[in-house]
Simulated assay, not measured.
Amino acid sequence: MMLLIPFAYAVKYEARLEDGTVISKFDGVEFTVSDGYFCPALSKAVKTMKKGEKVLLTVKPQYGFGENGRAHSGNEGAVPPNASVLIELELVSWKTVSEVTKDKKVMKKILKEGEYINVLMMGLLSKFGGLMVPVKLIGRLQDGTIFLKKGHDEDEPFEFKTDEEQVIDGLDRAVLTMKKGEVALVTIAPEYAYSSTESTQDLAVVPPNSTVNYEVELVSFEKDKESWDMNNAEKIEAAGKKKEEGNASFNVGKYAKASMKYEKAAKFIEYDSSFSEEEKKQSKVLKATCNLNNAACKLKLKDYKEAVKLCSKVCMFILASDICGSLHVMVYVWMHA
């Protein structure tokens, strides 16, 4: 679940002492209420303001710099102890900032609002998940170096499928929270980006342990075809493809991801009452294969109880079949698992 946190506010302000001495002035600065800026009064005031509004704040010491005041620092003037401060403040704009992950290591700031339902909700409405999302991307390092640019300068939008590990985890998670037409700035910590490895991208190298920023525009999205919109052959084909995706994840040690793939594959052919005899045979083999492979995943994940359940499903399938057919199926399953 995406957690909303205080807005990012862009302001202009000039602060001075009661004798007219200017102690701070900025023609454009951005901050969040949770982080604060300059003095506590600024964060409290912007929450009551409208875009474009200008106000004059009289700030008492308890909402300014208190009984200790503040020493001179760089271009910022000193504030005497127990001094009141006058602040001319203009709210230029504000943007929604959200925590994509609970540990705040993937943060999203909306630069342009989108429309209608977001990708995550579309994914929830899709029984099997996975949405094709065309996006425009600009990836930057913290120093501003552009390492990736896709979908701009008349190029076709970059397309990827969510929840398929086709992009870094943080970007995948962030796009799931976006709406059609939305433009957002996503800041991704190394744990959800390229981790401790160096990554060579189109325009530059991302050094190990880098926090990266992506400017993302979600052009549109399209959900996968639902099983009830498929004919029998399409269901069997979709199940087979999902099983192969599970095999690929299993082979590189991503057992939780593989388990999810096998579960999705089995769901495509969960109901086979309308299948022909040949289609039923194919679907039973596929279901048995997926359950056995999923059981192997559960063993790797030390989820022994679930592994037993999955194996039991296969045993029940065998018992429900004729003996010769069962032996044939078991040999076939183990050969193709």
Rank of each mutant, 00 (worst) to 15 (best):
V167H: 12
S210M: 08
Q201R: 12
Y13A: 12
L91C: 05
K298P: 02
A15Q: 05
D153C: 09
A189M: 11
P190A: 03
E278D: 13
K302H: 13
G66N: 09
E191P: 11
S24V: 07
P207E: 04
E270H: 13
L137C: 01
L4Y: 06
K150T: 02
K179M: 05
A258I: 02
E278M: 08
S321V: 00
E226P: 06
A248W: 11
S98P: 01
V285M: 12
N118S: 10
L292W: 07
K95S: 11
A307I: 04
D153R: 13
A10N: 14
F250Q: 00
L292P: 00
E164C: 11
M316P: 00
V55W: 06
V29L: 09
S259R: 14
T145E: 12
K102Y: 03
L137Y: 05
K109Q: 14
A337K: 15
I110R: 14
Y304D: 07
D103S: 13
P190H: 13
K280I: 06
D172C: 01
K313L: 08
V29E: 12
A193S: 09
E164P: 15
P40E: 03
K180T: 10
M330P: 00
V29D: 11
H336D: 03
S73Q: 14
M178N: 09
K267L: 11
L141Y: 03
N293M: 10
D272L: 06
M1C: 04
T211Q: 14
E198M: 07
K112S: 12
E270A: 14
V308S: 06
Q142D: 09
Q62A: 13
E115H: 12
V11M: 07
K104W: 01
M178A: 06
D27A: 09
L111V: 03
G246T: 00
S196G: 14
D272P: 06
V85N: 04
K281F: 10
C39A: 05
L310W: 05
G170M: 04
P6Y: 02
L91K: 09
M260G: 15
V285H: 08
V331C: 10
A204W: 02
E76C: 00
V308Y: 10
E198Y: 01
G69Y: 11
